[in-house]
Computed example of a mutant assay.
Amino acid sequence: MKKIGLTGGIGSGKTTVSKLLEKEGFPVINADEISRQVMEPGSEVLNDVAEIFGSDLIDKDGNLDRAELARRAFKDDHSTEALNGITHPAIRWRTERLFEQYRDEEAVIYDMPLLVENNMVRDMDMVVVVEVPADIRIERLVSSRGLDADDVRRRMAQQATDEERAAVADVIIDNSGTETDLAPQVKKLVEKIHSLS
């Protein structure tokens, strides 16, 4: 089984690319999805997060206010490290179980925003970076997700730079256009993945 690391900055459209790859028959492990799962109501991880970042983050039904957690956790390096220290071990454990589950597949797509930041590049057989200029990403996140532009810039500052991601990329996907523009790039990527086997 080949591990294909799929990464890119916030708002680059990794999910769109991973869905296209899923349609091509590749299983996808989505790190953001796993991070949501480990913070389900009542989980130990969620309790630890509330202890550090405030119990007011959890509503009466036990659900996490993710937007507010992001505001608190990404305001500085110390807060970001505190959140990562709580969530990353649980995320890593669940991720390893999923890779084990897919061990007989030709390749698995690992949709991981922090692939570069977490020094996981060396664990991948191929690294795919989805690139979009920062101004387009900000515009997309403000219009589609209703995020605050300054908050997006702060999150971007916490992530690897476009140059750092490009330096480790085996394949770069340009997602500054439409989904129609993506299709031929994904087709080429699929061929490259098949050629690894």
Rank of each mutant, 00 (worst) to 15 (best):
W93M: 09
L114F: 09
P41R: 01
N63H: 15
A134I: 12
D59V: 14
L20D: 03
T80H: 00
Q101P: 09
G146I: 14
Y110N: 12
D59T: 12
R66K: 09
L69I: 03
V38E: 05
I109W: 14
V45Y: 11
S18P: 09
E33Y: 13
A90L: 11
N118I: 07
L69M: 03
P27K: 02
E117G: 04
I29E: 05
A82E: 04
M39Q: 04
L69G: 01
N84V: 08
L196K: 13
S79G: 05
S143A: 15
E191W: 08
L20P: 11
R71K: 12
G9Y: 05
N119Q: 14
T16Q: 05
V168A: 05
T87Y: 08
V49D: 06
V152K: 06
S35G: 10
N118F: 13
K192H: 04
M126A: 06
I109S: 10
L189V: 03
S197A: 10
F53L: 07
T16I: 03
G62S: 11
I193N: 01
S18C: 01
I193W: 01
L64E: 03
V45Q: 02
V127A: 00
L21P: 02
V132Q: 06
F26Y: 15
G42S: 10
N84C: 07
I86Y: 15
T15E: 07
G9W: 01
R94K: 11
D32Q: 11
D170A: 02
R155C: 00
A169F: 03
S35A: 08
K75E: 02
Y102A: 09
G42H: 08
S79V: 07
R97I: 12
E191V: 09
S79R: 13
D32M: 06
T80P: 00
L141K: 10
V45N: 08
K188Y: 00
R103F: 05
E51G: 05
E163K: 10
R154C: 01
R94P: 03
E40G: 13
D77T: 10
L83G: 05
L141D: 08
V132P: 02
E117R: 05
E117D: 11
I109H: 14
T180R: 10
S176R: 04
K192V: 03
Q158T: 04
A149I: 06
R72L: 02
R165K: 00
T15I: 05
R155D: 00
M112C: 15
E106L: 15
M124C: 14
R36T: 02
W93P: 09
